[in-house]
Each structure stands twice: as C-alpha cells, then as structure tokens.
Design a protein around this nucleic acid. Structure first.
Length: 125
RNA sequence: GGAGCGGGACAGGUGGCUGCUCCCUGUUAAUACAGGGGGAGGAAAGUCCGAGCUCCGCAGGGCAAGGUGGUCGCUAACGGCGACUGGGGGUGACCCUAAGGAAAGUGCCACAGAAAAUAGACCGCCUGACGGUGUUGUCAGGUAAGGGUGAAACGGCGAGGUAAGAGCUCACCGCUCCGGCGGUGACGUCGGAGGCACGGCAAACCCCACCUGGAGCAAGAUCGAAUAGGGGGACGUAAAGGGGAGUAAUCCUCUUGAUAGAGUGGCCCGCUCAAUGUCCCCGGGUCAGAUCGCUAGAGCCGUAUGGCAACAUCCGGUCGAGAGAAAUGGUCGCCACUGGAAGUUACCGGAACAGAACUCGGCUUAUGGCCCACUCCAGCA
RNA sequence: GCGGGAGUAGCGCAGUGGUAGCGUAGGAGCUUCCCAAGCUCUUGGUCGCGGGUUCGAAUCCCGUCUCCCGCU
C-alpha cells in the first residue's frame, strides 16, 4: 500500500487476531438486547474506512443459524456502514436476534453505535 | 373411513433491484472494469465401519491385542447389501435375529429349595423287624410316581407293570447315533437303532475359523522473505547371569545389581544403521506467506442383455461447488401449499431437519408433506 | 481433523451380574437458659435416554444425547 492513487476498500474485514484483541482491550463497549458491540477508532489509510468482525459463539445455535446471523450482519454493515467510518468494530450477536430481518439488524446497529459515541470519549485501559 | 405395513421420488417455483466467490472472454503495464457461465445435502450431520490417495516405513515368521461370526452370493473393500436356512414376534401385510463351539479346560447360577450338577432324599409312598394296640413311634431297606421352591430339578404325556415305584416295558413326541434321498451349502425330509447318557450362561474367561503395519490433506510436494547455518551432553559394537517348560516372545524359580545403542510407535526372532549415526537438554520454531494437492470419479443418466435379487457387462449421452477465520447472500413482489375458519373475497401468519472443507462405498441419527403396492378392522352397495 | 473420559439422591462420590448405598444438605426429636457441635430417627432415585443378551442389568453388548479434557 502507500500509493495514494489506489483507494483501499472502504469496508473490509478485521482478520488478524491481534487487531481483534486490540478492539477488545481498548475499545468502547455497548450492550443492547440484540448484540454486544466493541468500537475503536482506527488509523488506517484511507482515513474514512470501517473494518469489522462478527463473532458468533457456538452456544448461539447450529451452524445454519450462525451462518445466517453472520450474513445478515455483514449485509447490514455493507449497506449502512458508510455512516460510521473511521472505526474498527467487533460485533457479538445475541440469541434474541434470531429471525430478525436485515432492516431490523441495521436499526439495532445504529442504536448501539450512537449509544457508544454519544456517551463521551473515555477509553478503557 | 380408521389403524398399520413395505417401497419410491422430491426438498416450493418464478421475476425485479443489489451483493459475495470461482472460471472463461475482452480492455489494461498492473490494479481494476465490462460481458457470459457455475455456486450446498439427503442426510453435507454423528464420526460407527470400509476403501482410494499421501507419507513414515519394509510389514518376513510368530506371541500378544483388537475386530468379525448361519449358508451361498455381490462388491475395490466392509461390521454393508441380496437371496435362502434355522429361531422368535405379529390376526395379517410384514418385522427382528452377534445364529460357530458347553463330551478341550476354568468359572458363575443370588434368594428360595432336600438337592443347582461325579446327583441326592425334606414332606411323602412301600416292605420287614421291634415297641405300642387307636392314630402311630424307632430302626433297617426299597423307591423317585406325587407335594412344595425356583428362571431352570437329570426327558414329556398316556398305558402296562409293581409291595410301592422306576425307559423296567410299549405307543407317540423330544434327544443322540447310523443310513437313504433332495439341495453348491446352511439345512430339509424319510427310515432304522439306542433306551436317556449331554441343565443353563461363551454380548463370562476361553477354543475354533477369518481379518487387521502406523498415521492422516493440519497427509504431503514445491517456492519465497526473515532469522539461524548453532551450543552442551550421552552411547562406542552390544552386556544381567544360572536352572526348568517352549524355536522365541512368555511363564516358574534362585542370585547379583540399578543399568543395558538407536529404529522397526506393545514384545521376540529376524532385518537396517559404523557416523554426514541415534537419543537427551538449551536455543529457535516467525510472516495465521504463496502455489500445488483440489476435484473426471469404483462418477451420473438412459437403453439392451445376464441374474429371483444385490449386481455385472455392452452401447450412447453428460460434466454437476472448490472457499481459506472460510463465498454460495440480502430485499421487494407474484403464484402454488397450509393455519386462524366454520362457505367466497379481503387480512394476518406459517413453511421441516439442517451448511461442503481431500474424495468415494455403507451404517446410524434428525426431519416435511406427496405418490404407489399391500394388510387388518368397521360401514354402505 | 484425530483421540480420551464422565453421566447414580439437592450437592460431592462408592457400587464390575442378585434387596441401590455413604457423606453432606432437608425434616422431626433428645441435649442446652439459647445457638453451634454431638446423638437418635426419617424423607428423598425413570442409575442420562432407547433397544438387546441373561432367570435377573447401574454393571455386559449396540445405538443415541449432553458435558469435560487433550493433540495438531
């Protein structure tokens, strides 16, 4: 990277375990009925990028249900993710969101996101 | 109509808009973009078996360990499948069956009961002797028919026979042995003889027959960057010994003693290794590096032939996912199915089990409605 | 992907073919001025579930479910 003419994708996955753990340790946390959300300001190039990871524990349900919830969250982030650029996020869906539609999930995400950013800027250590 | 039994195919369809991944074509230095095409299952699941493939290795002979167990076939193979036999269950369609050996040996059979396996005799029955004279007691002997216990009692039932009884004798049944016939065979059937001997458990140890080298695609192969191309120690030709059974592992016993090179992933024989060896300790073991393996295969569909069938063969057609923290989606309509519901419309819902990870053959489990054949019961004609 | 283990009373465990037990917890009583401790009595079980072998299964065999652990 480093070539300014080539914009990286504005929405990408958080893949590396170190980066996910960094969001865990130092990010801010929001708990709603639908999910647990961790947020951390990133400093990747370009500045307006969002990176995300979705973690679904095995206790959530069968492989079909886990795949399903990941797809719906991924779709919601790719459609509405431009409104929370500049953050790394890690999402834990909770079992209450089984059967929800994509629009509901997007609304839940927006609610959780504003719950974090509206509450001040103190970082956890 | 109800209940049941066996089998088969399927796994909602279709159209906008918009994503993901792989392949092909075109433009392009590359990134990228455009067009076209493919994109979960009958169980993808559990990982219970069997194979292919790969590496380690050499697998040769045995011991041990594990598995399988009616017969004949099918299959690459199997603990799978088909047909048949024996046994069991069901009124029936049909279903279940680890179904070799108990006279090779060892072990177990609680409680109850006299006795639980070289038979034996509690209550009884019968005969004789003695005491007593009504009813019986003791001793000696003969019995195993009857009683009672138990899951199971040393053939069953009936008749003859007898003091009472008894395969003691006879008929039938069972059992064992012999022979004939049918069948490739398991086995069936017929005849004769014996005169009852041989209780059950082998999903108890075991015996017999057959099978099994180990690990697994995170196998393994190639390439790159970075780092290191290391340090220390042990082993040094092979080693416990004697006696008995055995080729040996192994078992029994005595003594010394604290060790015996490594591999053959339990052990022995055998085999391989002479330092560029083997083992141990410290250090290192990172970039979730890239590519291949990676999907055309014991493949699928159709016809014909052989076979009761499983299946096999000929011919023709066909290509149907290949990701990498892991794609195969999201959303909005319409039409079918179905519930609220009792009639149409409108409205609100529901729509099973479940997600590929090297690939096949099975088994098992989960699960939705549909179709076909058959059985039993009830009603009507 | 591969391998191992467990499931028995509310809890922790024993029981390897023959009436399912121990500790603790619960209940009642004794003791004490009262409590604790102690003593006596007592309640409580589909032995995870479904089949099979056996006269008889928590135990043996097969299938299945849940939980835990290890290797790479």
């Amino acid at each position: 990277m480093g070539c300014l003419l080539v914009p990286a994708r504005s929405i990408s996955r958080l893949v590396r375990k170190i980066e996910v753990d960094a969001v865990f340790r130092t990010g801010r946390k929001a708990v709603t009925g639908a999910m647990v959300l961790f947020l951390l300001k990133n400093n990747v190039q370009p500045a307006a990028a969002v990176r995300y990871a979705i973690r679904v524990p095995k206790k959530y349900g069968t492989a079909v249900e886990r795949n399903r919830v990941k797809r719906i969250f991924r779709e919601a982030i790719s459609l509405y993710g431009k409104s929370w650029m500049g953050y790394d996020m890690v999402v834990f869906p909770r079992p209450q969101v089984k059967g929800a539609k994509m629009q509901d999930i997007a609304a839940y995400l927006q609610e959780a996101f504003s719950g974090v950013t509206g509450r001040g800027t103190q970082e956890r250590s």
